[in-house]
Design a protein around this nucleic acid. Sequence first.
DNA 1: GTTAGCGCTACTATTTTTGTAGCAAAAGTA
DNA 2: TACTTTTGCTACAAAAATAGTAGCGCTAAC
Lengths: 107, 107
Amino acid sequence: MSTPIPGSPVRGSKSGQPIMALFDLLGRSWAMGIIWNLADRPKTFRQLQAVCESVSPTTLNTRLKELKDSYMIERTDSGYQLTDSGREVLELLKPLGKWAKHWSNKF
Amino acid sequence: MSTPIPGSPVRGSKSGQPIMALFDLLGRSWAMGIIWNLADRPKTFRQLQAVCESVSPTTLNTRLKELKDSYMIERTDSGYQLTDSGREVLELLKPLGKWAKHWSNKF
DNA sequence: GTTAGCGCTACTATTTTTGTAGCAAAAGTA
DNA sequence: TACTTTTGCTACAAAAATAGTAGCGCTAAC
């Protein structure tokens, strides 16, 4: 699967509307989970494998590539970490964490 | 694929942490796109097929079932529409729309 | 120089998603 | 009333994504 790029056709928009490109990127398996798990500190490949319990190395690696290509994460000596952009997205995702707890009462 | 239920094992959390259940739900193809496209008004099955250009009826139908089972949408005489919960999630997703435009300048 | 950990890649099996066709029921039309 | 159209899906096979397992090349420590 190729990295969704705003302006080029993506899932949900032939013209590549930014929001649809973002949904395409974040809507792939583990994408949001990876960002979420990088919240506190950088993590190595194996650490990410550990926290994302059932992710296959294949998927983890392609997801990391896509997130790098989208300027969400970068690789440093201490492992993968969020970029400024990634951190901004994380801040936007955080409210979902609180909301999810409230939502879980419905079940 | 079964609907992710907070409290039961989901992708990203064997114990079913609410946020991971939500990520599992929203991280499936077209889930966020469907919610986004129901923002302004209810839509019929065929209308959703039209706005989600390349979604197959199979996937659309399973996604709709999952979103119904998760109390995000409901079916009425005028079509599928967001529930109060769905509208709350939409409000949390909206900032991503604005952010995505800014993000798209990086490409 | 052996051991241990790391970041992956290779490969196959399984699951998801697509793409196309079409059916049964409802709704409009004459 | 009969006929056509539209709608909400289901069926089915093909394609694509993901999982699962094994292990390789590298680095660093002992």
